[in-house]
Lab assay of single mutants.
Amino acid sequence: MISLIAALAVDRVIGMENAMPWNLPADLAWFKRNTLNKPVIMGRHTWESIGRPLPGRKNIILSSQPGTDDRVTWVKSVDEAIAACGDVPEIMVIGGGRVYEQFLPKAQKLYLTHIDAEVEGDTHFPDYEPDDWESVFSEFHDADAQNSHSYCFEILERR
């Protein structure tokens, strides 16, 4: 099963200049909980913004210009990325925008964090048809001392 995991502000903004323009430790914990011990696929820009392999996960970098870091697996196509994951129950696609666009048609599940923030962004989550998805989990949280904005975790499964 292919799943996408993303944090989205208003207007589906997911990033600005290779960074997330908010401070939500709870979302980072949600991300870790849902990706640990699963292969993660990301684009080169996302890889560069993280700066290191995510521990406890097979890191697969999709790029037309593969790098030389041998701590991760470099691939040039969506099919190659899927094959590099091996026989696993769930593959997690973690961004960025172009990689989400490439995998959305193949995805069966979306793990979304909806952030109540209007922020400037240069990267967006692809538009998706809500009628194609069923919400199977939703959990709202107010902003607090650690988390700069209110947010809602949601899991959607393709109908």
Rank of each mutant, 00 (worst) to 15 (best):
L24Y: 02
P53N: 07
K32I: 01
L104V: 01
R44S: 15
C152I: 13
D11K: 15
V136Q: 08
V136I: 10
I91C: 15
F125S: 01
D144N: 05
S49D: 04
G121H: 01
G56M: 06
D11A: 12
W133V: 02
R44Y: 04
K76P: 05
N59C: 11
D69S: 10
P55W: 08
V72K: 04
L4V: 02
E139R: 07
V10P: 12
A29Q: 10
I41C: 15
I2T: 01
Q102S: 12
E17K: 01
S64D: 05
F153C: 12
K38D: 10
K109S: 09
G86M: 10
P130A: 12
F31P: 02
V136R: 10
K106M: 04
L28V: 00
T123I: 02
I5K: 00
S49R: 00
L36H: 06
R98V: 01
E118M: 12
K32Q: 03
D79Q: 05
I155M: 08
R52G: 12
M20F: 02
H114E: 15
S3K: 08
V72P: 09
S77Y: 15
K106R: 11
H141I: 12
M92D: 01
R12S: 08
D87V: 07
S64E: 10
Y100V: 01
L156W: 13
Q108C: 07
P105T: 11
A29Y: 01
E157I: 04
S135Q: 15
K58A: 07
W47T: 07
S3L: 00
K58S: 08
D11P: 07
M92C: 15
I50G: 00
Y128G: 05
Y111M: 10
Q108H: 10
L24A: 14
W47C: 10
E157D: 09
S49A: 07
F137M: 11
G121T: 00
A117G: 06
S148P: 00
V40K: 00
W47F: 13
G56D: 06
K32G: 03
L110T: 04
F153P: 01
W47V: 15
W47S: 10
D11T: 07
E120V: 05
R57V: 00
N34F: 04
V72F: 14
Q108T: 11
E129M: 12
D70R: 09
H45V: 01
R158T: 08
